[in-house]
Design a protein around this nucleic acid. Structure first.
Lengths: 209, 209
DNA sequence: CCGTGTGAAGTCCTTCACAGCT
DNA sequence: AGCTGTGAAGGACTTCACACGG
């Protein structure tokens, strides 16, 4: 589709998101140009790393001057696909799912929730913001119509893998999983897990010393 | 304090948590022994990697046989510090903070919430489960008394850094941050950020192709 | 002169291959 | 024979140092 490199390391990709956020802040402060050294100082990173991350996608710095904030923001948004609307669905409207949905509605950037799902029949049918809650069994019918390619998965661990299979079957290409399980997915599907317990256990280890 | 290696890579450490979870499942299924190859198959990892991860802390496998599930669980819990009670505080009892607190109360392993904080005076004073909600300004007084060393930070981005400073000042040694900002902390403090937007943007990139 | 872009060096992590125990 | 533990090889990511352009 575009001539972007397709083999970008996840670490580098996550940093691009961080750069984008930081640049947006700088723009709001009225700053028009910034050097990699200045950026590096703001969040603990190294200047050459920032330059390497950026040059994967082309040369958009000006030697001797730095980067134009506005232009770089635009470029990063395009790279990340945030210039297009990204339709997402939330599966599992419990407390966490509800909180995430609310957050995404408030901070609606490129991401737009187009549907939600839950297994609790009492929740089904109600509207939250601009989208409706469907029963999970309707995933195969509803998802293809929405055109969503990204799903946020906040169901109980027991049903996570089953639900994930249904989602990919229905055309979902990427899953952000909050259930504490290791999802098994085909290589063409991208799954990212956010696991609070794993993070807490990591912190518990460090607190010991 | 113990003779554990103090320089364990975060990646390796996170895998230890994953092993622990998987081993617990195996135990519940009544499996007493397991080989690194079997473990590797369950979640997409390699057998030598599992062995390397484990041997950092000693040799607790049996050649020709594998690992004893129960013994390995005990060992991993000790390594991660989960044999002791880990007291944590939740700062910011909005929707996300509330959902996380609820989750941690239900799945109370080694982690016990001993206090919560919020800036909304209407929430202050109420009890959620076994802990009380204090006003954020009370952090300096309350935290030292609880003995908590880990904090979960779910406050708005604007106040995240300020709150984090107050927490470390009050004796908190590790912070799990959900606000979309890069926290600046001293090297003796461990901060981990979970940022939904960054993960979604990573997925948006992959969905493009 | 300043800061980007980039090959080369260095570091960290993973995989490999096999020695050694059961 | 089977599987762990481990030095050595391999790969991935980061840093360094400097050439090049503004």
């Amino acid at each position: 589709m575009s001539d972007q490199p397709t083999d970008v390391s996840p670490l580098s990709l996550n940093r691009l998101s961080i750069y984008l956020r930081c640049l947006t802040q700088l723009r709001d402060q009225g700053i028009a140009r910034v050097s990699s050294k200045q950026l590096a100082k703001q969040f603990q990173l190294s200047a050459p790393l920032i330059r390497k991350d950026l040059t994967q996608f082309g040369e958009f710095g000006i030697r001797g001057t730095g980067y134009e904030v506005e232009a770089l923001i635009t470029r990063l948004r395009t790279i990340l696909g945030l210039d297009r609307e990204q339709r997402i669905v939330v599966v599992g409207m419990g407390r966490l799912g509800g909180a995430l949905a609310r957050y995404l509605e408030l901070n609606r950037g490129a991401f737009r929730i187009v549907a939600a799902f839950d297994s609790d029949r009492r929740k089904v049918g109600s509207k939250v913001g601009a989208f409706k809650i469907h029963h999970v069994s309707e995933v195969p019918q509803v998802i293809p119509n929405t055109g969503a390619k990204i799903a946020v998965l906040t169901v109980p661990p027991r049903s996570a893998q089953r639900t994930c299979d249904a989602l990919t079957e229905a055309g979902i290409r990427a899953v952000l999983n909050f259930a504490p399980v290791q999802l098994q997915v085909n290589p063409e599907i991208r799954a990212r897990s956010v696991d609070v317990r794993i993070h807490l256990e990591e912190l518990a280890f460090f607190v010991q010393s």
